[in-house]
Amino acid sequence: MNYTAPEAGQETGLKGGALMFNPPVEESCAGLSELIHHIRLQSFPRVLAEYLYSLCRYDDVTMLACSAGKKPNLVYPQGSENHSPCFNNYLLEEYLLDLSLHEEVTAGKKVFRYSELLNGAITETEYYQRYYRFLAFVDEVVIRIQVSEEIAFFIGLGRREELGEVYREEMSRLQQMFPLIEALCQQFWISQGEHYIPTTARHGLLDSAMGSFGHGILTPREQEIAAMLLQGYSSKMIAQELSISVATVKVHRKHINARLNTSTHFGLFNAFLNYLDDYLTRAA
C-alpha cells in the first residue's frame, strides 16, 4: 500500500473516535496537478492512491481492471510482496462472488459503500466467509469508472477498526471529485491500458469448468447463459450477445435457478464455486 499521510494543519477535530481532516485547497490542487503530470505514465495509479488518501483515509487500496468474460486484472499495487495468499485466491476465483464487480447488482452506482449492495448483511454471505472476513474491514468504499467500452476500473478503499467507518464528509468529497477522477482515469487508460489487459484470450481449468457447469442438468442454451452470468454479463448484455430479447434471457434465468435449486444471482455463484472445488480436485 502506498499513500501520503495528511500534513500538519489538516486536522479539524475528533469525530467518532477517529481524527477527521480536510485537505487544504492548495494541497488538493497540488494533488490534481501531480495526477495530470502522471496521466500518461505507469506511475499514475500510485499517485492516484495518494490523492484519494487526501480525500478519504484508508488502510488498504486496490485497483482492478475488469471486462465481462474475463478475470480481473490487478492494476495497483503491483509486486508480489504486496499480495497476500488470500488476495491471490481472490484473483483466481473468489472474485466471482464479489458483487461490486457486477453492474447488474451495482445498478449504475459510481461511488458507493460495499455494504450498500447487501443492505448491511455482508456477514451472512458466502463471499464474506470465504474471503472478505479475512480483510478485517469495517467499511469499504468502491469507485467504479468505465474507462473504455469494454473495461471498467474498480478502486476499493478499505478501512479497519482504528479508522472506523467512512464519514459523510469523506463520501461527499469523493463524489464531488468523481467526474474529474473519472476523466483522468479514462485518459490514463487510453495511453497505458494495454499494459494491464492481456490481448490474448484466457484459457485453462477455470474456463473449462465454466463451460461444463450444469452439464446434464441445464440445456445447452441455459449452460451458455449461466456461463455468461458467471462472467459478469448483465441480462441486457446477454440479450445483445445472443441476439435474443431481455425477456427471453429472464425466462432462461428463471429455469436455471429452478434446475440448480438457486434463487438469486449470488446463489448461482455459490453453486459454481462448489462445482469448481470438485472440478479442480478431479483435475489434480
Results as ranks from 00 to 15, higher is better:
M1G: 05
G9Y: 10
Q10E: 15
E11H: 09
G17C: 06
A18L: 05
N22F: 09
P23Q: 07
S33P: 01
E34H: 10
I39P: 04
L41A: 10
F44D: 08
F44M: 12
P45S: 14
L52K: 00
Y53K: 14
R57H: 01
C66S: 08
A68Q: 13
K70T: 04
Y76W: 11
Q78S: 09
Q78W: 04
N82I: 01
S84W: 01
L96A: 07
S100Y: 14
K110M: 02
L118V: 14
N119A: 13
E124Y: 02
T125A: 07
Y128S: 10
L135H: 00
A136S: 12
V138T: 00
S148K: 00
G158F: 03
R168N: 04
E169M: 15
E169I: 14
Q176E: 14
F178Y: 15
L180M: 15
E182Y: 06
E182W: 07
A183Q: 09
A183D: 14
Q187W: 03
W189S: 07
G193W: 04
S212G: 07
S212I: 05
F213E: 12
G214T: 14
H215L: 12
H215Q: 15
I217H: 03
T219D: 13
P220D: 11
R221G: 02
R221E: 07
E224K: 12
A227E: 10
A227S: 05
Q231C: 01
K236W: 04
M237K: 09
S243G: 03
R253C: 15
R253P: 05
K254W: 13
N257W: 02
N261L: 04
F266E: 15
G267W: 03
L273M: 15
L276Y: 15
L276P: 04
L276E: 05
T281W: 12
A283I: 08
